[in-house]
Design a protein around this nucleic acid. Structure first.
Length: 284
DNA sequence: TGGCAGGGGTTGA
DNA sequence: TCAACCCCTGCC
């Protein structure tokens, strides 16, 4: 039986869909027309269109609740950005993409994506993501393969994963899937843990260090205070906030970002990262 | 067209 | 603290 194709329309203001889908937090979205993207919410393939004052989502068997949660369109963005520190760089980053949101993605898909992200650029991460879907995912609609679950990937060999251009990350992903299958870590249980303990649990997974764990906490578990520091952000923080510091240890930098950027530091980080990466940090 | 450097990180010694 | 891990992209 073919499930019904439907549309959902949500009135929004201050939602920058392009920046949100193109800011290195999700890897399953493709631009298919002016202001229109094709991608996934969990195991549901959807298209989303940015209208003048609304978002229009189309797909089969849409759940408004699941879509709203993924796109976080009910979130009061000004209440979040209002807690950001008021300094020249932060103001420029905010002005550059004022409606940028942090999505709420599936934990396993996020773990897998970020295990694959190490030493890779966004284009390459997307290629790996697509290869994993097409090779191992279930075809839920003609031509649309859902991202493979950890149950599915736990039965896949390291060599088969290597064929998806994972390189040395193949071993990490295969082992992480097997650890989940063996019950060593529960992604569901992490939902209710305090952030520090949740991070420790995630870091038990092979291929998940502090940076990847922080990305998963921020993009999948909604821990908006968590501030992942990668080489882009590190460079940006050093240039923007410590231009004259010859010696700024990693420890001091981490303490600074944890304290300075406040209760939604992860959100602030996403604005800075997107601005630095796409505008070069010069406020274009 | 080919050679080379370097990349959004983790692991293990 | 640091090399090793794969291999793709961008640049010359």
């Amino acid at each position: 039986m073919v499930s019904p194709y439907s549309h959902l329309t949500q009135r929004v203001n201050n939602y920058d869909l392009a920046s949100t889908l193109n800011s290195g937090q999700a890897f399953c979205w493709n631009l298919i027309g002016p202001n229109e993207w094709s991608g996934w919410v969990g195991r549901t393939p959807v298209n989303i269109l940015r209208g003048v004052d609304c978002l229009r989502v189309s797909g089969r068997n849409l759940s408004r609740e699941a879509i709203a949660r993924y796109f976080q369109w009910d979130v009061d963005l000004s209440a979040i950005t209002g807690t950001f520190p008021d300094d020249p760089s932060m103001r420029k980053a905010l002005a550059y993409a004022p409606g940028l949101r942090i999505l709420r993605q599936d934990p396993w898909e996020t773990v897998a994506n970020f295990i694959c992200s190490s030493m890779k650029q966004i284009v390459q991460i997307k290629q790996i993501h697509i290869a994993l879907r097409e090779r191992f995912g279930v075809e839920v609609e003609p031509g649309h393969h859902a991202f493979p679950s950890w149950q599915q990937l736990s039965a896949v060999s390291e060599n088969e994963l290597r064929e998806c251009k994972l390189g040395f990350r193949a071993k990490h992903l295969a082992m992480a899937a097997r650890q989940l299958a063996a019950g060593e870590v529960s992604l569901e249980a992490i939902e209710s843990l305090p952030t520090a303990e949740a991070r420790e649990e995630l870091m038990k997974l092979r291929g998940v260090g502090e940076k990847v764990a922080n990305c998963v906490l921020l993009f999948a578990y909604g821990r908006l205070e968590v501030f992942p520091v990668d080489v882009w952000v590190e460079r940006a923080i050093r240039t923007l906030y410590f231009p004259r510091a010859r010696k700024l240890t990693d420890k001091r930098l981490r303490r600074f970002v944890g304290e300075y950027f406040g209760p939604h530091g992860g959100y602030a980080q996403q604005y800075l990262f997107h601005w630095i990466r796409t505008a070069g940090g010069n406020g274009k």
